[in-house]
Amino acid sequence: MTILPSMVRFQFDQHRITVIDTPGQETYANNRFFGMFQADAAILVVDVKQGPQPITTQVVRILKGFEIPLMAVALTKMDRVDYEESAFRETEELVRLLCEDHGVVLDNTTFIPTSAYSPGRDIHEPGEGILGYEKIDWYDGPSIYEYMSKLDHQRIRPPAGPCRVVIHGSEVYDNVPGIGKTATALVEAGSVRPEQTLQFEPLSAEKGSPVTARVRSVQLTRGHIATPGIPVPEGHPRQLVGLAFKNVSFKESLRDLFKGRGVIAGPSSNPPKVGKRLRLELTVFDPDTVLKVGEVWTMHVHVDRAAIALDKVLAKRPTDSGDWEDTDEEGILPGEWARIEVTCANRPVAIEEADTLPMLSKFVIRHGKKAVAYGRCVKVIE
Score class of each variant (00 low, 15 high):
residue 239 Q to Y: 06
residue 170 S to F: 12
residue 150 K to R: 13
residue 10 F to L: 15
residue 137 D to V: 12
residue 150 K to F: 05
residue 217 S to W: 04
residue 231 P to V: 06
residue 312 K to P: 00
residue 307 A to N: 10
residue 250 F to T: 06
residue 313 V to D: 05
residue 183 A to L: 04
residue 206 E to Y: 09
residue 171 E to W: 02
residue 172 V to T: 02
residue 210 P to N: 00
residue 254 L to K: 03
residue 102 H to S: 01
residue 88 F to C: 06
residue 284 V to E: 04
residue 289 T to W: 00
residue 72 A to I: 11
residue 6 S to N: 15
residue 358 P to C: 13
residue 176 V to C: 11
residue 366 R to V: 04
residue 61 R to S: 09
residue 139 Y to K: 09
residue 21 D to C: 08
residue 270 N to I: 03
residue 23 P to H: 08
residue 232 V to L: 07
residue 169 G to T: 05
residue 346 N to H: 13
residue 215 V to P: 00
residue 348 P to S: 10
residue 206 E to F: 11
residue 164 R to C: 07
residue 332 I to Q: 01
residue 165 V to C: 03
residue 175 N to D: 15
residue 346 N to Q: 14
residue 96 R to S: 01
residue 17 I to Y: 02
residue 141 G to D: 10
residue 381 I to D: 08
residue 118 S to R: 04
residue 302 H to S: 12
residue 284 V to D: 00
residue 268 S to E: 13
residue 294 G to I: 03
residue 39 A to L: 10
residue 231 P to K: 01
residue 84 E to Q: 15
residue 275 G to M: 04
residue 80 R to M: 14
residue 138 W to V: 03
residue 302 H to T: 08
residue 119 P to M: 03
residue 323 D to W: 11
residue 249 S to E: 04
residue 366 R to S: 05
residue 57 T to W: 07
residue 329 E to D: 12
residue 7 M to C: 07
residue 336 E to R: 05
residue 209 S to L: 03
residue 196 Q to Y: 08
residue 70 L to D: 00
residue 136 I to N: 07
residue 291 L to M: 14
residue 125 E to W: 10
residue 140 D to R: 11
residue 324 W to S: 05
residue 163 C to Q: 07
residue 209 S to E: 11
residue 236 H to L: 15
residue 98 L to F: 07
residue 195 E to P: 00
residue 255 R to W: 01
residue 205 A to G: 09
residue 157 R to N: 14
residue 141 G to N: 03
residue 231 P to R: 00
residue 107 D to S: 14
residue 291 L to R: 04
residue 334 P to Y: 12
residue 79 D to M: 03
residue 223 G to A: 09
residue 240 L to K: 07
residue 246 K to D: 15
residue 289 T to P: 01
residue 17 I to K: 07
residue 56 T to R: 03
residue 159 P to E: 11
residue 336 E to W: 05
residue 369 K to S: 09
residue 378 V to W: 09
residue 71 M to F: 00
residue 196 Q to P: 02
residue 304 D to C: 05
residue 147 Y to Q: 02
residue 346 N to A: 12
residue 160 A to R: 12
residue 166 V to R: 01
residue 281 E to L: 05
residue 283 T to G: 10
residue 339 R to S: 08
residue 130 I to W: 07
residue 82 D to M: 14
residue 246 K to R: 13
residue 301 V to A: 11
residue 354 A to G: 01
residue 15 H to S: 08
residue 369 K to C: 02
residue 78 M to S: 09
residue 197 T to M: 13
residue 370 K to V: 12
residue 22 T to S: 12
residue 334 P to R: 08
residue 32 R to C: 05
residue 291 L to P: 08
residue 194 P to V: 12
residue 205 A to V: 02
residue 214 R to T: 15
residue 48 V to Q: 00
residue 172 V to H: 00
residue 231 P to G: 09
residue 269 S to M: 08
residue 296 V to I: 14
residue 234 E to S: 12
residue 220 L to H: 04
residue 174 D to F: 07
residue 13 D to G: 11
residue 331 G to R: 11
residue 280 L to R: 06
